[in-house]
Simulated assay, not measured.
Amino acid sequence: MEDFLTLKKQLCFAVYETASEFNKLYARVLQPFGLTYPQYLVLLALWESDGITVKDLGEKLDLGTGTLTPMLARMEANGWLQKRRSQQDERKVYIHLQPKALEEKPSITLSIREEIRSCQIGLDEYEQLMRQLNDLHKKLKERKS
């Protein structure tokens, strides 16, 4: 049992170390585009469904408005997106991609794909890891407090 209590036997530490390496990988790839990793996640969400509300985007990314609002303001200032207040309900703000985000998408996704490929992760392994991490995430969210 004592062996289990070592740092290298902790699943949380393995996830932490892996996340740290992913952050470095994405920071390096996204830097030439002037993007941070969280901004890339915003673009991914908008590439899936452009024109969603700030509230829906926050729910999709699990980010609060305190984090999301300044990030969206920076992205808008840099020409990635535009925020538009609803004419029907002024409480709703919609986010729309700007041409820059659509034009840069192929270059960004190619750079990410090449960097992931350089990690020697095959498609089957990638899909298996995704399933396992999604299962783990679900179990952590559903645990009894």
Score class of each variant (00 low, 15 high):
49 S>H: 15
54 V>L: 09
14 A>P: 02
41 L>T: 15
99 P>C: 13
19 A>D: 09
14 A>E: 09
142 E>Y: 05
145 S>E: 15
21 E>M: 07
1 M>W: 03
76 E>Q: 02
65 T>S: 14
16 Y>H: 02
21 E>I: 03
83 K>H: 05
102 L>T: 13
136 L>Y: 09
98 Q>N: 02
29 V>S: 09
136 L>K: 12
115 E>M: 08
125 E>R: 10
118 S>A: 15
47 W>D: 06
108 I>P: 02
129 L>T: 08
138 K>P: 05
63 L>H: 07
93 V>C: 03
62 D>E: 14
36 T>N: 04
86 S>M: 07
127 E>L: 10
134 N>Y: 14
19 A>Y: 00
114 E>H: 06
133 L>A: 13
19 A>M: 08
92 K>G: 06
42 V>W: 04
104 E>S: 14
35 L>C: 04
83 K>P: 01
1 M>Y: 11
125 E>Y: 00
36 T>P: 10
8 K>Q: 09
51 G>F: 12
45 A>D: 11
72 L>T: 04
36 T>L: 10
65 T>C: 13
28 R>M: 03
102 L>G: 12
96 H>S: 05
55 K>F: 11
25 L>H: 00
97 L>Y: 10
77 A>E: 13
97 L>M: 14
76 E>A: 04
82 Q>E: 03
28 R>S: 05
38 P>F: 00
3 D>C: 01
106 P>L: 08
125 E>L: 09
7 L>C: 00
33 F>A: 08
88 Q>E: 15
118 S>C: 09
138 K>W: 14
10 Q>E: 04
120 Q>P: 05
111 S>P: 04
96 H>V: 13
57 L>T: 02
37 Y>S: 08
3 D>W: 15
21 E>P: 04
75 M>I: 09
93 V>G: 00
97 L>A: 11
139 K>W: 08
45 A>R: 09
13 F>S: 03
105 K>M: 01
123 L>W: 06
98 Q>S: 05
15 V>A: 12
23 N>P: 04
29 V>Y: 05
12 C>I: 09
43 L>W: 07
45 A>K: 13
117 R>V: 15
7 L>M: 05
71 M>P: 01
138 K>G: 11
131 R>K: 07
88 Q>A: 07
115 E>I: 06
58 G>Q: 03
73 A>M: 01
70 P>F: 02
35 L>G: 04
115 E>W: 06
116 I>M: 07
72 L>C: 01
35 L>S: 11
102 L>W: 14
103 E>L: 03
135 D>Q: 12
113 R>C: 05
56 D>M: 13
16 Y>N: 04
2 E>I: 13
107 S>P: 00
68 L>E: 13
